[in-house]
Write a protein that binds this DNA or RNA. Structure first.
Lengths: 209, 209
DNA sequence: CTTTACTTGCTTGTCGGTAACAAGTAACCT
DNA sequence: AGGTTACTTGTTACCGACAAGCAAGTAAAG
């Protein structure tokens, strides 16, 4: 029982969900500000309004926390992608994915930056965020491969292509463009690249029929 | 004068050049083994056969050391690129660059890995290796743009393209493919991608004439 | 050639800061 | 109330960075 004039009196689950969200939010801000290496668990906890130790306690380790942040961001991206692509297949789906990504980067550039910072961090043979990055990329490559396979089945895509190689190149283009955009933003104009990338896709992959 | 039976008696310059090389070499091995975060300056110094403090003393900071490593690797890559591309321009130069990169990755996969690890590390707003990565990417994009401009001048490349956008996409494809290869090596087959990437380039950029 | 003053390569001592864990406290639950 | 769960504080080990010192090399004077 809570005394009349006291605090909201949340349930335990609500309390932890609240602090989790606050810390992930704080982590995002700090990541953008100071990068992965410059972000400390203590700073995250305190910025979220708690003690220096909570982040470690809740997420176990720095890698664990970054994994949680990555999952949150990834989830938002996949929602946008799904909404844009819908049930399309073949080259249409790939073009829609390009549009979705452009939209995502424009609407939530912070999310895009964070995702890229975290996935870059996954470079070495260390980290737990490595496995998240691997899963995400693998998933995206296989999605594209499925689009292509369906496109071949329905006759909209040439049947003499190497599906896996094309899928990897497609994902690689987007990953690479984001990477460059993060480092050399003035050189990377997503909107300008969209047109030629889509046209190139159609020229290269669409069936002659 | 050195006593007959005594040690090699190197000059100061030779001594420091020797330890520099030893430490950069040690740093490369540790980077491949433990990643950027897992590599410590003390371990580098000791692995190179010196004290825990030498790496810091010589390179000033961890970022400074990584910068030196990056420069060494970058230098080797640029040599391969220059040898393969030569005086070619336009689409020919870009195809040669693809071949050069495939050759580089096959001949010195460790170098490719290290470069990618370091350039990934440059994601956040921190680090000194960030500026090296930026310079390198900027340089590569402008090289490709020059190839394209020359190709338009000599008539081998369509004149209705957006040079900068195409150059960025080209570099982005390679950067992204390497990034994926580092994380998901089994999905990325450089040799399979070479053929279709080059064909796509020619289809998309070569002038109709 | 030898001595001496100086420079440069390298090592050791140390400090602030951080991740990770453990033990304790306070809030919620039954 | 007792017990479970959310959170805090105390502590340890480790790392990057710096600074003071030591030793190896260099060069000028006698």
């Amino acid at each position: 029982m809570t005394k009349p004039g006291s605090a909201p009196s949340l349930t335990q689950a609500e309390r932890s969900a609240l602090s989790d969200r606050a810390m992930i939010e704080a982590a995002c801000e700090l990541l953008l500000e100071k990068g992965a290496g410059g972000t400390t668990l203590a700073a995250i906890g305190e910025k979220a309004g708690y003690s220096r130790g909570l982040a470690t306690y809740r997420f176990g380790s720095k890698a664990g926390l970054f994994k949680a942040v990555g999952k949150a961001v990834s989830h938002r991206w996949l929602a946008v992608l799904q909404a844009e692509v819908g049930e399309q297949t073949g080259v249409d789906a790939m073009c829609a994915a390009i549009d979705a990504y452009a939209k995502f980067v424009q609407a939530s550039p912070d999310d895009a930056r964070i995702q890229q910072i975290l996935f870059s961090e996954a470079g070495g043979p260390e980290s737990e965020s490595r496995s998240l990055a691997i899963d995400t990329y693998r998933r995206q490559i296989s999605d594209v491969a499925t689009w292509l396979a369906d496109g071949i089945d329905t006759g909209s895509v040439r049947d003499d292509i190497d599906i896996d190689a094309e899928a990897v190149q497609f994902v690689a283009s987007i990953v690479g463009a984001t990477h460059l955009w993060l480092l050399v933003p003035d050189h990377v104009r997503f909107d300008a690249m969209r047109r030629s990338a889509k046209q190139r896709l159609r020229n290269h992959l669409a069936s002659a029929a």
